[in-house]
């Protein structure tokens, strides 16, 4: 119960201090809006193209929304030493890091619904397999958040976290099958695609929205869970090694 009180209050504090701030709320709305608009225009104002770009836009909205915020909630707090206060509290490190990342996960999930709500005005969404879509969104939000956490604890400065994030994020746009099928990539890039977690999340979204997935849902879920666990425990190891000197 005591641990839950601490967990809940860290999450609540982060929402109040970071996620519910106007710049972050507007980021959560404007970013998916810009992506959708950009791809819509690129496809020659074809309404039907909205459906084909939707999985990619949803995945990108989550990826950018979650990874951007971890550099603030973790790296910035470490830099100004308020994170030390959390490390000195009698909360298991695993719970502390889950509390610090839960806000970003929720923020990522909320972000994913912005393009969905927008698309609902243009296309028929009745065919979407929500029972696959919802787990896909949650898993992408978790894996992206833990990727952001891994980056946030690997660096010392906020700008380093942002730069390092981009090093992962931008190649993922092209390599994870968000907008271009992996099969159309040069042969030497294909193995890299399968090493990136977003590939599996995007595949689930393609299956849920377009009914076109190349990997079975079960395998996608297992691989995503594997990436979540790996990234979370690597981050914990880095915190223990770098921050508890």
């Amino acid at each position: 119960m005591k641990t839950f009180t601490a967990f809940w209050n860290i999450l609540k504090k982060d929402f109040k201090t970071y996620y519910l701030k106007p710049p972050n709320i507007s980021w959560g709305i404007i970013f998916p809006l810009a992506w959708t608009g950009m791809f819509f225009i690129k496809s020659g104002n074809n309404i039907e193209s909205v459906q084909s770009i939707l999985p990619g836009v949803v995945a990108l909205s989550i990826l950018f929304g979650t990874t951007s915020l971890l550099s603030v909630t973790v790296t910035f707090e470490k830099k100004n030493r308020s994170f030390d206060r959390l490390l000195l509290a009698p909360i298991p490190l695993e719970v502390l890091m889950l509390a610090k990342t839960s806000g970003a996960i929720i923020f990522g999930i909320i972000n994913s619904f912005v393009p969905i709500i927008m698309a609902a005005f243009f296309i028929d969404m009745s065919h979407v397999a929500w029972f696959v879509f919802i787990p896909a969104v949650i898993l992408i939000a978790v894996v992206s958040t833990f990727l952001g956490l891994f980056i946030a604890v690997a660096v010392n400065e906020v700008f380093e976290a942002q730069t390092f994030s981009n090093f992962f994020r931008f190649p993922m746009i092209f390599l994870c099958g968000l907008f271009f099928p992996i099969s159309s990539l040069p042969f030497f890039l294909k193995p890299i695609s399968y090493l990136l977690p977003l590939t599996y999340g995007a595949d689930m979204l393609h299956g849920a929205i377009l009914g076109k997935n190349s990997i079975s849902v079960g395998i996608n879920i297992i691989v995503l869970l594997f990436f979540c666990t790996l990234l979370f425990f690597l981050s914990l190891r880095n915190v223990r090694k770098k921050w508890i000197l």
Binding site: M1, T5, N9, R85
Partner: peptide, 9 residues
Amino acid sequence: FCASLYGIK
């Protein structure tokens, strides 16, 4: 907030 880290209600 600091009190909540120690599980105080």
